[in-house]
Simulated assay, not measured.
Amino acid sequence: MSALAIRNVHKRFGDTTVLEDINLEVDEGDFLILVGPSGCGKSTLLNMLAGLEPLTEGEILLNGQRINDRSPRDRNIAMVFQFYALYPNMSVRRNIRFGLQMRKVPRAQQAEIVRNVARILQIEPLLDRKPAQLSGGQRQRVAIGRALARDPALFLFDEPLSNLDAKLRVEMRTEIKLLHQRLGTAMVYVTHDQIEAMTLGNRIAVMNEGRIQQLGSPQDIYDNPVNRYVAGFIGSPAMNFIPCDLVGENGALSLSLSGAGGPAHLPLPEALRARLGAQNKTRVVLGVRPEHVTPAGPSHDSAVDCTVRVVEPTGPDTYVFTQVNEVEVIARCTPGQAPAPEETLALNFDLSRAVFFDPDSDARLA
Rank of each mutant, 00 (worst) to 15 (best):
A238M: 04
S256V: 00
E291Y: 10
R273Y: 06
L272I: 15
L286W: 04
V284Y: 08
A264Q: 10
I242N: 00
A274F: 08
L286R: 07
R289P: 04
M239T: 08
G287C: 05
V293P: 02
G248E: 13
G287W: 04
S256C: 07
P267D: 12
L276S: 11
R273G: 08
G262R: 07
H292F: 07
G248R: 05
G262L: 02
D245S: 13
A238F: 01
S236G: 02
S254Y: 01
L266M: 12
Q279S: 08
P267F: 10
E270W: 07
L268H: 14
V285Q: 10
D245W: 02
P243D: 01
K281R: 14
Q279K: 14
S236M: 02
G235C: 04
P243L: 00
E291H: 12
P267A: 12
L255Y: 01
N250P: 05
A238T: 11
P267R: 08
R273H: 11
A274V: 13
L246A: 03
H292E: 01
I234P: 02
T282D: 09
L253S: 05
H265N: 09
I242S: 00
V293E: 00
L253F: 04
L257E: 10
V293A: 00
S236E: 02
N240Q: 00
V247F: 00
G287H: 04
F241W: 03
